[in-house]
């Protein structure tokens, strides 16, 4: 067999654009940090267990240190008391990072319309994907993950998407 450069490249290299290659790598290696506080965290346990198995989508490396994660899954009710902690965790994560708001409470306060419950985490931190349900079924969280991955593949990563975000706890 002739060992010229063209043959070698045909077998072992593909031509692409850099951002597509990075997007492909990102979408398949999301490392979630589960900020689980309530019932939704129990449903996340199901997502991680063998029946639904989040590792099929390359997102099973759950980290409890925000420094090591790039996907924040807020699973459960966020109260006013919890809010500064959520904000701190979010800020400790380095870019690129994404936020999934799992369940009715995280999205809007759910049916806890009262003095202690934050009416949606988007009052505090920017959110990329909302998952409804109280709690959402495991399939719904997987769907959120897939839609995020799809977004990363097609629209690429836009670091400026939340640049105008101002939360209740941000100093304006």
């Amino acid at each position: 067999m002739e060992l010229d450069t063209t043959t070698l490249l045909n077998d072992s290299a593909i031509a692409t654009r850099l951002e597509e290659a990075i997007g492909w790598a990102r979408e398949s290696s999301l490392w979630p940090m589960v900020f689980g506080t309530a019932c939704c965290a129990i449903e996340f346990m199901s997502v991680a267990a063998s029946k639904y198995d989040i590792s099929r989508f390359g997102a099973e490396v759950v980290r409890f240190s925000p420094r090591q994660a790039d996907l924040l899954i807020v699973a459960g009710t966020i109260t006013y008391k919890q809010a500064p902690i959520l904000k701190q965790i979010y800020e400790q994560m380095s870019e690129p990072k994404w936020v999934v708001s799992m369940g009715a409470c995280a999205c809007s306060g759910g049916f806890y319309d009262n003095y202690s419950t934050m009416q949606g985490i988007d009052n505090i931190i920017p959110v990329d994907v909302y998952v409804g349900g109280c709690p959402p079924r495991p399939e719904a969280l997987i769907d959120a993950l897939l839609s995020l991955q799809n977004d990363l593949r097609i629209n690429k990563y836009n670091p400026d998407r939340h640049k105008d975000f101002r939360g209740l706890l941000d100093n304006v």
Partner: peptide
């Protein structure tokens, strides 16, 4: 504690 105090009794 109280991080998940979501006002059940008042609701």
């Amino acid at each position: 504690i109280g991080y998940l105090h979501r006002g059940f009794e008042k609701s």
